[in-house]
Design a protein around this nucleic acid. Structure first.
Ligand SMILES: [Zn+2]
Ligand SMILES: [Zn+2]
Ligand SMILES: [Zn+2]
Ligand SMILES: [Zn+2]
Ligand SMILES: [Zn+2]
Ligand SMILES: [Zn+2]
Length: 654
DNA sequence: GAGTTTGAAACT
DNA sequence: CAGTTTCAAACTC
């Protein structure tokens, strides 16, 4: 994705809805249910359900305000938000942003769609008619661009027996096409800003035989209507929404993940995500490729196309798409990847604030080479499989000591250099650091809470975010919402004591088993991403004293600042220490080269956590890739990254 | 633009 | 689940 798209995304996140007063009328609230709230309501808004919280909001609104009763004859009527209600929506939206920050896989979960429009309209109707009436909405100018994903929501709900009893609150966005300037952009940017106006020009398909109703069709697979395509006999449009709906269902039947991003954030760390050559490498294909003849160096290979390295998931033959591959070098695209790549990366919130103390050198290919010299993936299945476990542990373990103890075969076989900090930062140090950071976090939180305790406003008390009932009721659907990446497996178990997360916890325990026992704080730092929905609700639940959403957000900001500052100090010390060691080694002429190597490695650590040129920690994320930084909502949005949530949770746990 | 190659998706 | 067919994009000329 070109930089312009990054800007676009960040601007999308920065959208200040309150200032679009003239757009208020575009927002509608569904009518209320009749039977005293006995009806099921849910927000139907797409992957990750970033606006799931609106479900709670609507319910609270329903309870506290007079909303027209929903009757069979008016259930499709739309109810306009009054200004007061609208402001609550805006507030909630901001809170969502602040809670999830740039790591929000859910908030920015749909770049294709995110590039299209902000919230415009909510419609409630029985699920039974949703699909067909969606077409009417579309004709009225509102496009259910998330339609394919919406249907995730329809599936597997044992609590819904009758489609007429289940009301879907649909979230509609105004279709955003490069050729039709967005309404939302008119007040936030000059109309001639084509850079942003044409962010992700949709690729047009040329389907001939699939009616654009199979995953063969890129449009269909992307979850968007065909528009401007060269397809023949196309049914992937609003006029064929019914048959399309069937096709979507059938597709999901075959593969429930069909419409979810193929590229998840893998174990490749943030540092990995951009090495000294600027290569964006993070993410990995969830299913992996199965290339046979392309050597994974052509766009036939989905990994290569996504500009990511092949991973353990891949079953390719003669793969050359690994770090250090000489064949790959000249082919590497330095443009930060294809649209596909960025979309998927964004979809998965792959760029979060990940703190790693140890440079990672593990790569699929390297490990292969270590365990077998064959160039065919599958041929050395056994040894490769065996190597996988330690590899993952080492690649996601911030403690050098851990990887050296645990991955002895790897380390002893082909270690190019040894970290200067390998002997400096021990497990207990990391543990102490984590404790310290948690302490800081707690102190800051307390301070902020004290400061804000009197600021509680009546309005905010109304806004309920991410109701637990919602979440728990749909627990079985969690996998429908949250991309199940490997990082997910790791992270979702972190510091979470909720009984209903046993599965995740056990995953986490397994990790600990396979690896080295690490403190919760270390685990916190290890993890790339998390179940944000759960985290959000967990965070809310963990802090009952703060029903004030804004307070919570601000507390997070303060916490983040404090924690990052401390961590920066620590890193600076580390850098100094490393430099001293380097000096020491340098004096030994034989070690000269190695020291140089380490310097850059060490520098990259610091660089990724703290801008080397400034003393101030930016309010944005600690992550360094331009991509994630750009996605980050601007300062005003009070963004909070993963680290925040983690620390928050950890604090609650302690 | 036509023809070939390729590997995912679909099918059996 | 594996083997085969279908499919549309990627690639080549
Ligand atoms: Zn198509
Ligand atoms: Zn199309
Ligand atoms: Zn089409
Ligand atoms: Zn491949
Ligand atoms: Zn691959
Ligand atoms: Zn490969």
């Amino acid at each position: 994705m070109p930089p312009s798209c990054l800007l676009f995304l960040s601007l999308f996140l920065a959208l200040d809805f309150p200032h679009r007063s003239e757009k208020k009328s575009d927002l509608y609230l569904p009518a209320a249910a009749p039977c005293g709230g006995s009806r099921l309501y849910d927000l139907n808004c797409g992957a990750g359900d970033p606006f799931r919280c609106f479900g709670g909001f609507l319910r609270s609104l329903q309870g506290s305000r007079s909303i027209p009763e929903l009757r069979p004859d008016n259930m499709s009527e739309e109810f306009r938000f009054c200004d007061e209600e609208w402001s609550k929506v805006l507030h909630l939206q901001r809170r969502l942003i602040s809670l999830r920050g740039n790591s929000s896989a859910s908030w920015i979960s749909q770049p294709r769609r995110a590039a299209e429009a902000p919230l415009r309209r909510l419609v409630c109707r029985p699920r039974a008619v949703a699909a067909t009436e969606a077409a009417a909405s579309h004709r009225a100018g509102f496009s259910p661009h998330v339609a394919p994903v919406n249907f995730f929501y329809f599936r597997g709900r044992s609590d819904i027996e009758n489609d007429n009893d289940f009301f879907v609150i649909e979230f509609y966005t105004n279709t955003c096409k490069p050729e039709s300037p967005k309404p939302w952009s008119q007040d936030s940017r000059p109309a001639n800003d084509t850079k942003v106006g044409t962010p992700t020009r949709k690729k047009n398909c040329n389907c001939k035989n699939s009616k654009c109703l199979k995953l063969y069709c890129e449009c269909f697979a992307a979850g968007v209507y065909c528009d401007g395509c060269n397809c023949t006999n196309c049914c992937n449009n609003v006029d064929n929404e019914t048959v399309r709906h069937v096709a979507v269902e059938a597709t999901l039947e075959r593969n429930p993940n069909a419409f979810r991003p193929k590229i998840g954030s893998g174990t490749q760390t943030l540092r990995d995500s951009r090495d000294e050559t600027g290569e964006p490498l993070f993410g990995r294909h969830n299913k992996g490729c199965h290339c046979k003849k392309s050597e994974c160096l052509k766009k036939y290979c989905e990994c290569f196309q996504a500009n990511i390295l092949c991973s353990e998931n891949c079953k390719c033959l003669d793969c050359k798409n690994f770090e250090g591959s000489m064949e790959r070098k000249p082919l590497f695209r330095g443009d930060h990847g294809s649209t596909l790549y960025m979309q998927h990366a964004a979809l998965n919130g792959a760029a979060g604030a990940h703190i790693f103390l140890s440079p990672t050198i593990s790569r699929k290919r390297k490990i292969q080479d270590v365990f077998s010299c064959t160039s065919v993936n599958g041929q050395s299945t056994k040894s490769f499989t065996q190597s996988k476990t330690p590899v993952q542990v080492s690649s996601s373990t911030p403690i050098p000591a851990a990887s050296s103890t645990n991955t002895a075969p790897v380390a002893s076989t082909k270690v190019i250099y040894r970290s200067l900090l390998a002997d400096t930062v021990r497990t207990e140090h990391v543990r102490d650091l984590c404790k310290l950071l948690v302490m800081v976090s707690g102190e800051v939180a307390k301070t902020v809470a004290d400061r804000q305790i009197e600021e509680s406003s009546v309005l905010e008390g109304h806004v309920e975010c991410s109701p637990h009932s919602d979440y728990e009721r749909d627990q079985s659907q969690k996998d429908l919402y949250m991309p199940r990446t490997s990082a997910d497996e790791c992270s979702s178990g972190i510091s979470l004591d909720k009984p209903d997360k046993e599965e995740s916890r056990s995953e986490c325990r397994e990790r600990e088993k396979g690896g080295k026992p690490v403190s919760p704080g270390t685990l916190v730092l290890m993890c790339n991403e998390k179940d944000m929905i759960f985290m959000a609700s967990q965070a809310a639940a963990a802090d009952p004293s703060s029903s004030n959403n804004r307070s919570t957000s601000e507390a997070y900001v303060e916490q983040e600042k404090g924690v990052l500052t401390k961590f920066r100090d620590y890193l600076l010390k580390l850098v100094t220490c490393g430099q001293m060691k380097e000096e020491k080694y340098r004096s030994m002429s034989s070690m000269h080269e190695r020291a140089c190597h380490m310097e850059s490695a060490l520098y990259s650590i610091a660089r990724n956590s703290v801008p080397a040129t400034t003393v101030e920690i930016p309010l944005t994320r600690t992550s360094s890739p331009a991509y994630s930084t750009n996605i980050c909502p601007p300062v005003g949005c009070q963004t909070l990254g993963n680290g925040d949530m983690k620390l928050k949770l950890e604090k609650a746990e302690m």
